[in-house]
Design a protein around this nucleic acid. Sequence first.
DNA 1: TGGCAGTTGCT
DNA 2: GCAACTGCC
Length: 470
Amino acid sequence: MNRRRTIVMLNNDFRLHDHPALYNAVNSGDVIPVFIYEEEDQEKWSIGAAKKWWLHQCLHSFQQSLHEVGGKLWIFKGTANEILPRLIEETRAEAVYWNRSYHPEIYKSHIKLAKELSNHNLEIQTFEGITLLPPWSTTRKEHEPYRVFTPFYKAFPMKSVPQAYPSIKRMDTPNITLNSLMVEDLDLLPKEKWPDFLETAWEPTEEKAIQIFKHFCEEKLGHYGEDRDIPSREGFSKLSPYLAMGMISARSMFHYLLDYRNHTAFIRQLIWRDYAYQFLYYFPHSTTLPLQELFKEIRWNDDEDRFDAWKKGSTGFPFIDAGMRELWGTGYLPNRVRMVVASFLVKDLLIPWQKGAEWFWDTLIDADLANNTMGWQWVAGSGVDASPYFRIFNPATQSKRFDPDGAYIKKWVPELKDLPKKYIHEPWNAPDDALAKAGITLGKTYPLPIVDHAAARKRALDRYEEIKNK
DNA sequence: TGGCAGTTGCT
DNA sequence: GCAACTGCC
């Protein structure tokens, strides 16, 4: 007798633990896991370069994981709408399962797909595989999302977060002939040489993700509230790349955390993530347009040279430059630094936040459309629960507060490493002999600041004032 | 999930 | 001089 066959369509959920679609498929018969790589059709927010690199690593790793439990991964190129109907026919599958993606384009096309497939006498099921609870579940009223985080957080029904599904130990694959592409065929690796450090900074396995998480709970969770803001102390989890690719599940983290003391600050971050998904789900256009209409009117100073200086980490502000270089070198940035460099781009340089969002999207290996959008709209002040427009970070003050001994700066901006910590946050104020002694010539070995912060701050306030009075 | 200028009230 | 505080952007 033929066993029932289920196709599981994968998308940023490369794990065996707490995988609703895969788990349910495994329990109903033979499973055909497929990954369909939607080639760039110039669509906005298709995967950025860094995340492509990471996807390449993760696909290899997940192939191996599936192999170890008796499964196999089939890889295709194209769109799900073209490929799935053909697969269903060729494999004689009776069901198609997937965990929902909330990327607006993908979500839309999957809904359309589900409609089309339902004509084929198939069982179609979608599951929640990303967030703690589906984005529509904690709203003010039906279809009315929260506009401020704190009420969302307070209303969030922690007791309703479902238990994680057990890890899959064994799966059955039908004996079929079905050609799959190799990971290499997807051509995900960058053409140019990437910084060497990237190759060694991240290990793309589910086991590693879980190991990092457990280590985090044991060693760092207790001080997470304070240490997560100090980049040199690395008090944060560094799990975002794994979370973004679904190598670890938010739900399983959530339940595991409850057994530890001092878990509140971290769980709050997980709920921020759910909130970002609610934001993306209800405001899909927010990826490119300011949520508050007024902010469309801001007069930017879209200066390409300054944008380049920001991207390259040569703004002359050590803390900013350290961050931008870390981003380029590792595909990662601590949240505090993300906020400060983002504020600098938007407020000090008056460059549209969308350009910053695109740069982050291309360079972060943990790039996540919901988090990226919410973060940039927050900084720009144009989101719902946004930072007030007058909140402008002072790059030097933030540097002194969160990198007091300059360790982070020295790591990423080595040309300043011999400068005493007294001057390292604002080298333009250092006396000549201190600079000479450290072997620094401003404007030559390290740039002069590309803007005067005090003047830039005033200018930003003026520009925001203009729209306020409209 | 700020910063700044102006002020007070100390040394 | 300076911390601590205040009101405002």
